[in-house]
Design a protein around this nucleic acid. Sequence first.
DNA 1: AATTGTGAATACTTTCACAGCT
DNA 2: AGCTGTGAAAGTATTCACAATT
Lengths: 228, 228
Amino acid sequence: MTMTTEKETNQKKIPSMTVRRLFLYYRALLESKDTSVISSEELAEITGFSAAQIRKDLTYFGQFGTPGRGYNIDQLKQKLIQILGVDREWNVALVGAGNLGRALLTYQGFKQQGFKVSTVFDKDKEKVGKSYHGVLISDFAHAKEIIKSHDIRIAIIAVPAVAAQEVVDQLVEAGVSAILNFVPYRIKVPPHIKLLNIDMAAELGRLSYYLTNDVVLAKMPELKEDTL
Amino acid sequence: MTMTTEKETNQKKIPSMTVRRLFLYYRALLESKDTSVISSEELAEITGFSAAQIRKDLTYFGQFGTPGRGYNIDQLKQKLIQILGVDREWNVALVGAGNLGRALLTYQGFKQQGFKVSTVFDKDKEKVGKSYHGVLISDFAHAKEIIKSHDIRIAIIAVPAVAAQEVVDQLVEAGVSAILNFVPYRIKVPPHIKLLNIDMAAELGRLSYYLTNDVVLAKMPELKEDTL
DNA sequence: AATTGTGAATACTTTCACAGCT
DNA sequence: AGCTGTGAAAGTATTCACAATT
């Protein structure tokens, strides 16, 4: 049965919406220290997703529950840690030491989850050489060497929009394979690079839309991809 | 069997994924100053969405194009401004003057798009009364009066996770109807409140997943909801 | 008795492909 | 000839509902 040597059949296709929720399940479990077992219904209560959805999401990765009881919290947590790859510390490069960049640097939420901003880049000579929050600001001109020597695969970018594409091109060149983009500009990346956008102004734009067209939506039972 | 009328919708139903893209179309048009007309194909090139998708999205709101030519940029821009409700300035309250909150305050991307952070709240007496970036930090205890007097309908929250639910409850009580949540905690809101979450750590978690399970996805033709 | 795991049904989203307008 | 607008088809995602399991 496993004789077909086509590309990679080892990976059954995981729906991208499932991947989005995984980390949220994990975080919800961190909050649940009181009991040793949790049902999909209880996890649904905490996360706002439906119980059926949680069960289905989890079964993409195996069968972790016990019928009649629920999921063992420690065991499920371990499994999620493994699936998410957060059983290690990731070195992250931050590009752009402006207001937003510096705030992201001080944001504790990253380190708490195993993401360590180990380098900050900027091209402003005024900033280069100084330290911020204990992290040295390096010249982006040296990005390639530093990224390789620090084994950095994830970059967060918070540079001016006009510089974004060029910066990303160089990051990709330097070997970065995942980018979290805070710049309000649609960057293009080659297919093997994973890019996620956090577009704060666009989110406010959406809120403005909903207020303007007052979608008081009579019914809105649970959280949806929408609010995710 | 009929408890609630299902087709009572006064609005024709706009798909939520369409709403997400609207602001991005608008921003793309702001970049296109060179010509007076743009085709769905050109807009697709800029935004990374497919031309068919753009055309379909736009037709939910009317017929703005000219067959054989494309869309008149100024006209479409105007229309989008109107649809999105960004033809006005929105007063926004920011709750939480910590590192992230202060960075959001200085972020120029909001003001550029017509969102003015007119008030900052914190409950720390040390901070209250001081100004940051030209905005006075007010005591969250007075949120209700200030929100009403400033006609604030949108709030951005960047408080510690433990305080988030309580803060939101009070904001809702004060009359806020849209919330942009930066706190890594799943807040519950009543159905008439629009809540959007920006969960930075969760996004890094997703990237970690993709790196770990190296989804080098052989094919990834265009931007998808996924990266949006 | 409670709760999982999962096919089947439903709902939503994107893409296709082409008639029809300019 | 070129491009929009749009039904129909294809692809994803969510919910339902219940047999199986503890």
